[in-house]
Design a protein around this nucleic acid. Sequence first.
DNA 1: CACTTTCTGGACTTGCGAGTCCAAAATGCT
DNA 2: AGCATTTTGGACTCGCAAGTCCAGAAAGTG
Lengths: 204, 204
Amino acid sequence: MKLTAKGQATRTRILDAAAEYLRGEAPGGVTLDEVLAASRTSKGQLFHYFPGGKEELLLAVARLEAERVLDDQRPYLDALDSWDSWAKWRGALIRRYRAQGTQCPLASLMSQVGNVDGAAEVATALLQNWQAHVRRGIQRMQDSGQVSLGMDADRMAAAFIAGIQGGVTVLRTTGSTSHLEAMLDVLLAHLRGAPTEPTVPFAA
Amino acid sequence: MKLTAKGQATRTRILDAAAEYLRGEAPGGVTLDEVLAASRTSKGQLFHYFPGGKEELLLAVARLEAERVLDDQRPYLDALDSWDSWAKWRGALIRRYRAQGTQCPLASLMSQVGNVDGAAEVATALLQNWQAHVRRGIQRMQDSGQVSLGMDADRMAAAFIAGIQGGVTVLRTTGSTSHLEAMLDVLLAHLRGAPTEPTVPFAA
DNA sequence: CACTTTCTGGACTTGCGAGTCCAAAATGCT
DNA sequence: AGCATTTTGGACTCGCAAGTCCAGAAAGTG
């Protein structure tokens, strides 16, 4: 299937409309007709650009949203090399998810596409990628002597990922970010290491 | 509506069949017909005992499952008063969720009933209850001097809840309990207040 | 300009599944 | 027994939403 510029534009329009719709309230069941209405296109076009129908469309949206997750924190996530940068990342996370509130586009997606082959892969890839970024941040802290070399960076990064997921899960059901905050604080405290350790570990 | 013993039994049969079904694989959409088949009852009966239809039935199942969550860890959760008991609880959690694997009855439920009024309440109540149990455990540790009095028990308990949720979320998408384990280890270490490492990694 | 390919609209089919209805069987009550 | 109430089965309606089909418009191509 060849796509002209116009075709490409229409495809994108459908995809964006679907994503936008799922991002909104009431994500408990998208219908193609709603997506069509929102994108001002027709059934014919939708199946022209997404021959796999709903399944293919939702999977495409999932991929889109997965990218957004990392993009949103990119500036902070890529710059984890000082305690201040970690604090900034923490703040960005909380701000982002507080704004997002009860809606979580990816979660909505996964619940509707979860049993489809390929959906789990998208989510898994995101988690791994995310974890790798955190791990690199931890390693950088180790390289500069701010975090103990004895710490298992990958395992700690895994804990961060799980913690964030959990905080968001709780947020989605209760509407409060307090769990997420508590979680991140514990993790950061642990990363910093012993309370016994003085702030300046090695003489400058 | 009055219920005779027979009626009560039928109602239970329907409820259990629905719960059992949702616990199994492919939880991506229950149909009443499937529940009926599994419980060997008829449409008439289902709407007789659950006038609210599907919505009411699923909500009832959700309540059932919410109880199960705590019941499963009750012996351990109620006995958090020594480091050994915490380790046992950790083990029980991991065992339980490892066995459960990718299936999470409550999560499946919530995704299908989430937008319904009352569903969020069930989940929130469970989380609060759960957190309260953990908090009491922490307080008991403080009373016996095993945990610093300076620790905010409720906040720490919140972190535990979020951590477990996150570990399970990751487990549901990746199938591995490693994140859950890493998470719990960090939390327990923090609870202990001890540095994880004898530092001085950069000797010489 | 002819001709091919891509794009677009929307009517139509189809299947599924929730909820309704009612008549008959079982049970409870006095 | 006689009457009221509860229980049961299943056929039926009804709406929704996914996916099909095709004819016509709009590019691209040489």
